[in-house]
Amino acid sequence: MNLAFIFYVSFALCIIGIFGAFYFKNITAMMVSAQFIALSSVINFLSFSQILYENSVPILSFVIISMFLILIFQFVIIFYLYSSLNYIKTAKVEFENNLFYFTMEEWLGEK
């Protein structure tokens, strides 16, 4: 397998993720785009460590722990929005603008 091809494909995936995260206002599409960015970095890390270097164990442990952390953080955001601990939410969580103009209240679902 040509490593440059994997490099280009993962970059294309990353660009799709960045475009989606900036273009869409819906939080579901943003989370999906964040998955694209994270998984493109995983593809890059793993393919480079496996094909270029002999010992891929340290990078593998780094990928596992960091992906767990990213997933936990995303899980916490969605759980916070989904659970509505204090009051019943009937509004759809959608930002007023795209990510270029976002505010903290919008991210937390308080607005």
Binding site: L3, Q50, I51, L52, Y53, E54, V57, L60, I64
Partner: peptide
């Protein structure tokens, strides 16, 4: 890029 000819398999024990 110069690919390694031999690839090491990393098992769960190594991780």
């Amino acid at each position: 890029f110069n690919a390694e000819k031999s690839i090491m398999l990393a098992g769960f024990i190594n991780i």
